[in-house]
């Protein structure tokens, strides 16, 4: 097989159909960009799960009265609750965070947001008993037993907050995947259409090729490569789009949230991690679409 011949046919084909080619590339790029966005969200969720898994605690918030008057949890009712909690099955450890410690912790957490630090006074933060559980399933029983007790304001499972956050992120991921899928359908139809148009434009060439005994592969390969090249160009544009969105959008708009460390940063490494996936998806999907179109709709 003569590579130079096939290459020149591909270039000619793309050039002759330039508007359709551009439409095909742009649609593919948008679809892949959204797919890449969805993949980045998955990476974000994974990383958050890793980060928070060991840190989540069940927190027993104390009433204002306890928070104000018992900074070491040595008086009743705090001391009694603490010792009861320590003897409760499924509880691995119990530690006390006083109002002052909570305030210090808060200041450290929101170091990058001085406005927030100025507004919040220590009185707004309750003291708490923080539990690590051997068995997270014990939360419901603990909550039932200790809610409403004198000195206890509320019992909260931090894992629940994370579940809510993951729920939002999963929603974002699903939405991007859904739009990516619709775009992908449009891209597939455009690829199929472009190949049919390209085959129609070159029917004299392909007719001659068939008559002089060119193999089916030789006749079809330029069309297939046209689809694959467009797909890959689309993938490269999508990767470029992700890099630009990171620099101009994610880094700037999301800085306050990501700066606190609540949500981990999306780095360039993450984009480079999803790039080969996008290239692979683009190459294989456009090749398969091209092949099926040639088999089903084009007589070569």
């Amino acid at each position: 097989m003569r590579a130079s011949f096939v290459f020149s046919e591909v270039v000619n084909g793309l050039r002759r159909n330039v508007t359709m080619t551009i439409a095909m590339i742009l649609t593919t790029a948008i679809s892949l960009g959204l797919l890449g966005g969805g993949l980045l969200v998955i990476r974000l969720i994974d990383r958050m799960q890793d980060t928070y898994q060991d840190q989540v605690e069940v927190v027993v918030f104390m009433t204002d009265d306890v928070s104000a008057n018992d900074s070491t949890c040595t008086r009743q009712p705090c001391a009694g609750i603490r010792s009861e909690l320590e003897q409760t099955p499924g509880v691995e450890s119990v530690s006390y965070e006083s109002r002052q410690e909570a305030f210090t912790h808060f200041n450290k957490l929101f170091e990058s947001q001085p406005q927030l630090r100025e507004v919040v006074r220590p009185e707004a933060l309750p003291a708490s008993l923080r539990l690590k559980l051997d068995d997270p399933a014990r939360f419901a029983a603990i909550k039932q037993e200790f809610s409403g007790r004198t000195g206890v304001d509320s019992v909260v499972d931090q894992a629940q907050y994370l579940e809510d956050l993951f729920g939002v992120l999963n929603g974002v991921r699903n939405a991007t995947f859904a739009i990516a899928l619709i775009q992908a359908l449009a891209a597939l139809m455009l690829i199929s259409n472009t190949i049919q148009l390209s085959a129609f434009n070159r029917r004299t060439e392909t007719g001659i090729m068939r008559l002089v005994g060119a193999t089916r592969w030789y006749t079809q390969l330029p069309f297939l490569l046209e689809a694959v090249v467009s797909g890959l160009v689309g993938a490269v544009l999508a990767i470029g789009g992700l890099l630009v969105s990171k620099a101009l959008f994610i880094d700037k708009v999301m800085a306050p949230v990501m700066g606190t460390g609540v949500i981990p940063r999306i780095g360039y490494a993450d984009i480079f991690y999803v790039s080969p996936i996008l290239l692979l998806v683009a190459g294989s999907i456009s090749a398969i679409t091209g092949y099926l179109t040639l088999r089903l709709y084009v007589r070569l």
């Binding site: 097989m1 003569r2 011949f5 004299t204 060439e205 001659i208 002089v212 005994g213």
Partner: peptide, 24 residues
């Protein structure tokens, strides 16, 4: 005739050999 109008005489003839993979 069925010639390729965008190719020269020699290219038209060469085309039949190119597409069956004959060496240059």
């Amino acid at each position: 005739f069925r010639l390729l109008t965008n190719k020269t005489v020699a290219e038209n003839v060469a085309f039949a050999l190119e597409v069956i993979g004959k060496p240059r």
